[in-house]
Computed example of a mutant assay.
Amino acid sequence: MDNQLYLYFVFNCVAETENISHAAKLLYVSQPAVSKAITNLEENLKQTLFIRSSRGVKLTDEGQLLYKYTKEAFEILKKGEDLMMHMKELGVGHLKIGVSSTLCKYILLPYLNRFLKAYPHIKITIESQSTIHTLKQLEKGTLDIGLVAKPANQKLYKFLPVDEIEDIFVATKDYLDNLRLREMDEDIFATANIMLLDEENISRIYINNYFKENNLTPKHILEVSSMDLLIEFAKTGLGVACVIKEFVHEELKKGQLIQIPLKKPVNKREVGFCYNHNSYLSNSMTKFIDFITNG
């Protein structure tokens, strides 16, 4: 079929010029090569496509019918080429990003705001979901890039760090007063209502490992589906919430929440953009990666 397409291309050029030598010059091939291509096509179709004369060639009725369709086909291809080049010049493209609702609100949105000002013709699709789901989609190739905490599998993913986050425990002053927890000698995890993200969340898995490593066993756990809800529940005095310190900066500054000191603080984590090593880097992806790296 590839060779047949070339034969149609040669036929279309000869039909337009009505001259084999002129067509040969346009195609940058020899005149015998053009003549042979036309002969091969006629033999394949078992039809005479041109009437030859000393003045050039003229389409037969069958040739005119075929030319009607080849002309339309190659014009469509040319339009496709032109549109593709135009889109490239404008920077038109599409980028699919996976991110948790928390990281989307606090980290991704500022990046997108600046990126879209630089590349307004790139369409962005955001899939708000857990980090685990985002990593699975990156592995399958159904997402271009994700904003996640640094994944353990560095062989599969390319990770571009953009920030560090710190997990802390917070509560209102009234809640701590009621529990008489100003003296931190007591085990807060044994007495307080500990509010955590659900079990499938990467942050929860990280905190569970922290509990295990430090022999801590929370007795009263309230699971919440999002970081925003954890923050709001903590502000209403429902308990002690495990939150990202960088996301409650204002609440800590205003005294709405108090950070609870720990004997051993939770280690900070890296957050960044992640994509599959084997993924195809489109123009949009290349621009976004360059923006992250150098922007």
Rank of each mutant, 00 (worst) to 15 (best):
N12I: 01
C13E: 14
C13R: 12
V14H: 06
A15T: 08
A15Y: 04
A15W: 06
E16G: 13
E16K: 15
E16F: 06
E16A: 15
T17A: 14
E18M: 15
E18F: 07
N19Q: 11
N19R: 10
I20W: 04
I20A: 07
H22A: 11
A23M: 09
A23N: 08
A24R: 01
K25W: 10
K25S: 12
K25V: 05
K25Q: 13
K25I: 14
L26D: 04
L26V: 06
L27K: 04
Y28G: 11
Y28R: 14
Y28N: 14
V29H: 03
V29S: 05
Q31G: 00
Q31N: 06
Q31H: 09
Q31F: 08
P32S: 01
A33I: 01
A33C: 10
A33W: 13
A33Y: 12
A33K: 15
V34E: 10
V34F: 06
S35R: 15
S35Y: 12
S35H: 15
S35F: 08
K36N: 09
K36L: 14
K36P: 01
A37K: 07
I38T: 00
N40G: 02
N40L: 15
N40V: 10
L41R: 00
L41V: 00
L41N: 00
E42I: 01
E42R: 00
E43Y: 03
N44I: 08
N44V: 08
L45S: 00
K46Q: 08
K46C: 04
Q47P: 00
Q47T: 04
Q47H: 10
T48M: 06
F50M: 11
I51E: 11
I51L: 11
S54A: 15
S54M: 12
R55N: 15
R55M: 13
R55E: 15
G56N: 08
K58V: 03
K58G: 01
L59K: 03
